[in-house]
């Protein structure tokens, strides 16, 4: 592996370090240096890349001392989570555990306690890894990305935020300030499942399902998967197929049959494309089953 041929003890080049204390100041620095600058959040992705010289920014803009990016709070409709909030803080939040159990489940599965003490939610989204666990959960929750740039702020559906591996909508002079996560409908059940080689590893495949039944009929269904395409995916065709149907064994079988055509997995060090195709169906079945149990069973 490439990583074994590089010296990961040091960062082998020089850069300038900036630690702005406000969002405005951070945006000014980013505008000044353009693509020479990179945002530093928890560094758990960025510094690993820099050690391998995959990127060599001349300027690092540390956003961890910007109060606006560390906000965390719920309103009547959902949760606002600042991009620089650490995963560990989210994991510990009783409010998130209660109102957004899917996000809690996904975040608790990430890395080790050390990694979660460092890594931020924004970093997981902006790195745009196809397997990003929080991204998959937030897609199924239909979160919105909040973006600030030199000309103001905007809100975009998270689904449109990811363009491909390591690529997002963000321009070099923009910052992801946070996400807004609406609460799932009252009475919905959810499940996040991650299959990895070890419990510390990135996902071979991960899946998030939000499901609500009424009188045994699927009323609300959101499905997202990771590590099966160049970016985290919503499986909209399966969602619409299931909506309005009863979850009979036949309907479920038909839905699982649609998985293969909806994903484009690759073979890499973690698994083969064939394995990912097979296991995606198993995970979808398991996640639906768990989500149904959590919303009170098939009869609900």
């Amino acid at each position: 592996m490439e990583i074994n041929r590089v010296n990961t003890r040091i960062i082998p080049f020089r850069f300038e370090y900036h630690s702005p204390s406000s969002l405005g100041e951070a945006l000014t620095i980013l505008s000044r240096y353009g693509s020479e600058a990179r945002i530093l959040a928890g560094g758990t992705d960025l510094l690993v890349d820099m050690k391998q010289r995959l990127i060599e920014p001349r300027h690092l803009v540390d956003i961890k001392r910007i109060p606006e990016l560390k906000l965390l709070g719920g309103d009547a409709g959902g949760f606002m989570i600042g991009s620089a909030v650490r995963l560990r803080e989210l994991e510990r939040s009783e409010a998130i555990k209660g109102r957004l159990p899917l996000l809690h489940e996904a975040i608790s599965s990430m890395g080790s306690v050390q990694v979660r003490n460092m890594a931020t939610l924004g970093g997981n989204l902006c790195r745009a890894s196809p397997s990003a666990d929080a991204a998959v959960a937030l897609l199924a929750l239909e979160a919105e990305a909040l973006i600030a740039g030199p000309t103001g702020t905007k809100k975009v559906p998270l689904e449109g935020f990811f363009l491909g591996p390591r690529a997002t909508l963000l321009r070099p002079d923009e910052i992801l300030t946070g996400v807004y996560v609406p609460y799932p409908p009252e009475g919905a059940g959810s499940a996040f499942i991650k299959l990895g080689r070890t419990s510390l590893d990135l996902a071979i495949v991960n899946i998030a399902v939000v499901l609500k039944l009424r009188g045994g009929i699927v009323e609300h269904c959101r499905i997202a998967m990771g590590a099966v395409a160049p970016k985290p995916l919503r499986l909209r065709n399966i969602e619409s197929f299931l909506s309005g149907r009863g979850l009979t064994p036949e309907a479920l079988e038909e839905a699982l049959g649609m998985v293969e055509a909806s994903i484009k997995p690759i073979t890499d060090i973690r698994a083969t494309a064939d394995y990912r195709r097979e296991v995606s169906k198993v995970l979808l079945r398991d996640a639906i089953k768990t989500a149904v149990e959590r919303c009170g069973g098939l009869g609900s």
């Binding site: 370090y17 630690s19 560094g43 758990t44 510094l47 690993v48 306690v113 003490n117 460092m118």
Partner: peptide
């Protein structure tokens, strides 16, 4: 607990 190999001294 954090990982000092992935934190800048600054």
């Amino acid at each position: 607990p954090v990982l000092s190999c992935l934190i800048l001294a600054v």
